[in-house]
Amino acid sequence: MKNTLSIVVTNQPGVLTRISSLFSQRDFNIDTFTSGKTEDDDYARITITASGDSRKKDQMIKQISKLYDVKKVEVMQPENTILRELLIVKVSASGEKLREILDAASVFRSKVVDMSPGSVCIEITGETSKIDAFLNYIKDYGILEYCRTGLIAVQRGKQCLFEHKKNSKNETKTA
């Protein structure tokens, strides 16, 4: 079972190491891991996708929650979450093949971001399945390299993962 975890942490050096170290200590598998600043400079937000049954998922949340720098952990509900990842793929192509690739790119609503004699770079965002489908389509054209960011996730509607200013500063860790 795939789980998407959203984690708010204090924006400190070494925090990512602690999270990834916990995953290896407890034999949790990370599929994707993204991290970046948030609307509040004091906090960073991490999105991890990890597979595991419900027992493992429960342990992931509880063990991550115990880390000193972690302020909030939540498993995102797929039906109520906007999930996106970004792919940049470089394909070897020219002539007729290039035309076909550009057609496909437009069907997938992706963007051409660079062209050079013999190659083209395409950027595409979407859910993992869409990106996988695009890669599957163009794989026979000769992929030179690609790079994907891993998922980020935000809950739909007005509700937010973490109310930074109101209650977080005085929040202290115990366990």
């Binding site: 027992r55 429960d58 342990q59």
Partner: peptide, 12 residues
């Protein structure tokens, strides 16, 4: 237990 992670870790 005082530690929530102990609940369900080894014994449910």
């Amino acid at each position: 237990d005082i530690d929530p992670a102990e609940h369900g870790k080894n014994i449910d």
